[in-house]
Design a protein around this nucleic acid. Structure first.
Lengths: 235, 235
DNA sequence: CCAAAAGTGTTAGGAGTACACCCATGG
DNA sequence: CCATGGGTGTACTCCTAACACTTTTGG
């Protein structure tokens, strides 16, 4: 079942323009937020970035980073902006996940949240813990505190999506440093899928995909030096 | 232009993270709509239900059925409500697709739309054309008119999703009558995927899945009568 | 009896899975 | 020299894909 390509086909173009005298909309409005499930792998465990809420509602609870979409701001731009505010970088894999809008999910009123998930390479995630957001911490997804709002559901949705995409795309690569050993890649997959994989089968499969190439470097940390690989750039 | 009324001033706070005094956000409200890509198969062609717009903007253009999410209404409820309004039934497969919120996608202002897609069984789709919405018509996916807003993009997104899900789920069943021949099922798959399939391989695969069972009826319309199948109910 | 669609098996290649040992190095 | 993780091959099964003829009926 290993199909490689997955990129969403957004090839059609929208017919633009034609806005004439606009009937001003006196229509129901809601608040729109983005929430971001920031995931990484540390110590071969899948972890999520959570922030302790300083204010009501759910004061003291942990929550996913997120915030309101500003006027005239694209959803994805809002997600990247929040990502930068909470993690200090925008240079991360980001993908829209699902949109949640059940009444009652936020006690302050009708809040529709567009959930995204982001992947932080393992070698960069320690940096994020030291950003200005003092109350942000990584939590292993097994072993979570109680979460604010419906964030537990959103998080579960993200983990499921990641597991599924791992099997037919190359998202896993977004969680590793630029150079990595095949064992590291395998540990990553095992951490996300939550099960052990056969070493020989895994290596054969990865190599047969032709997406990685050996570098000239070896990793000397272990006993026997391990070959470092990098992702073959498109082109 | 976009006269966003700001009646409800709830003075929200921007951050869920910074533990300091929060600058109240300007106007964190937007309009939220649902748009529904209603798909069916007629004459072994994948078709979509479009509605001719009676008012600006995009007056006279065809658009996906959709409308505003009401106060205190769940997104999915709004989608089902629109579905009933435009098609006369709610008893259809419905799945959230993606959320679009680019600034400028609606000339009237900031409108975030949560797109859904719905599947109408082939034997029920003719009924829908006769509902009260006189301007609603089925259009083959190849051979579309110019669409309002960014609806072409939303539609493309739905078709891609359907094609992908066809390969690893049973969504295809949602487009067929309760009893159907294997040839009909194959034609359906061919219509959606846009390519021919081998008859023997297709039948073997479908039967091996164990999801369908032969009924006691035959379809007499063709030359040689064909076995009618139905979906095996869970349990 | 002919046109039209229904139905049916075999083979070859590729992918996944299960499984056990030797190798290079640091301490 | 030994503990640790790196690295390798084979056999079996299963799924996929290619491929052609016979059967049943209506007209």
């Amino acid at each position: 079942m290993a199909t490689l390509n997955d990129t969403a086909d957004l090839s059609f173009t929208a017919s633009q323009g034609k806005g004439q005298a606009d009937a001003p909309l006196t229509k129901p409005q809601a608040m729109v937020t983005v929430d971001i499930v920031v995931l990484t792998v540390q110590d071969w465990e899948l972890k999520v970035l959570l922030i302790k809420r300083a204010h009501a509602p759910f004061q003291g609870y942990y929550a996913l980073p997120g915030g309101f979409v500003r006027a005239e701001e694209a959803l994805e731009d809002a997600a990247f902006r929040e990502l930068r505010e909470e993690t200090g970088t925008e240079d991360l894999y980001l993908e829209q996940l699902y949109t949640f809008g059940d009444p009652g999910r936020d006690p302050r009123g009708q809040v529709v949240t567009v959930a995204y998930y982001a992947l932080v390479p393992a070698d960069r995630s320690p940096l994020l813990a030291t950003t200005d957001v003092a109350s942000a911490h990584w939590f292993p997804i097994s072993g979570l505190p109680a979460l604010a709002f419906d964030h537990a559901r959103i998080l579960a949705c993200a983990v499921t999506r990641l597991r599924n995409k791992l099997e037919y795309t190359t998202v896993g690569f977004e969680l590793l440093p630029r150079k990595f050993t095949l064992t590291a890649l395998q540990r990553l997959h095992e951490a996300i899928l939550g099960k052990a994989l056969d070493k020989r089968n895994f290596r054969r499969k990865i190599l047969s995909l032709g997406l990685v190439m050996p570098t000239k470097e070896m990793e000397a940390t272990g006993r026997k030096p391990a070959q470092l690989y990098s992702f073959r750039q498109p082109g």
